[in-house]
Design a protein around this nucleic acid. Structure first.
Lengths: 143, 143
DNA sequence: GTCCTACTTCAAGTCGGCTTGAGGTCAAGT
DNA sequence: ACTTGACCTCAAGCCGACTTGAAGTAGGAC
């Protein structure tokens, strides 16, 4: 039976997120348990959706702090829709950067030039304006 | 005059990369200096292009280790064009993921549903296949 | 010869996002 | 009564990519 409340073990089983991470997320205020049974946390099933939301955002490169700001504590309405739009624009820029990188990689894989650095088409990207400007978003690919 | 060899200070000035990072990159084998003048490193100007290449790759989400594997020590030919192609495919997947995230964010910013979690369109993404896969929760893409 | 300055080394610290481990609690089963 | 197993807390550790800081060195100007 799908109970309305589940223990941490069940959350782990159904979300794939380790217990240590769940506790960490709780500490960070990203999720919360509805109550305790003794010491043990009791969650509402909705935590599974919150976790999915967090996973999606993380995989899009957002930090836990950003996720916290974008969606209120309980995955709620979002006080700041403008921020969501801003994040979308940010993603757009990232996507364009990655697309051009992808094209260059494909070219590099096919290009017969002895060194990529000697290939005019590959060099193009090296002269792109803001290569190492301070606002670089880390972690788009990993984790 | 643009000399063929430059000191670390000049590299810093022209690349914007801090000296500490240059030394770190050298330690990691990403760049190397042509010789020493006393203790001081002397670089070839080509190091600037290598640094640009590294910056581009980093901004595309590649780790230093991956960059090391993709392009030989000196930014050279690339022994493994297949790997470049693989990386391009990886990027493609990432881009698709980000694009869908961007669309969802935009929708969330405009959607009037009280909670994003109640909006059918937003929930769609939460049920995407690879969110909570057993086994490889870690590293959807790389690293 | 001495001083400045740009450079050096090496060890340790930082940050985000967790994980690991030691030691404790508690309800249920035998 | 005791053990088991699932859960707990809290502190410390880890990884990648650097940065910071203390203490040393060498080349050129004066």
């Amino acid at each position: 039976m799908d109970a309305v409340e589940i223990g941490i073990g069940e959350v782990v089983r159904r979300s794939g997120v380790p217990a240590s991470t769940l506790r960490y997320y709780e500490e960070r205020g990203l999720i919360s348990c509805v109550r305790r049974r003794g010491l043990a946390r009791v969650f509402e099933i909705s935590v599974l959706e919150q976790l999915a939301l967090i996973a999606v955002c993380r995989s899009a490169g957002f930090s836990l702090d950003e996720i916290l700001l974008m969606f209120a504590p309980d995955g709620r309405p979002s006080p700041n829709r403008a921020m969501l739009a801003a994040k979308a624009d940010e993603l757009d820029a990232t996507i364009r950067r990655l697309a051009s990188m992808r094209d260059d990689l494909r070219h590099a894989a096919a290009c017969p030039a002895p060194s990529h650095l000697e290939c005019p088409s590959f060099r193009r990207v090296l002269n792109a304006p803001d290569l190492r400007r301070d606002g670089d978003e880390r972690g788009l690919v990993g984790r």
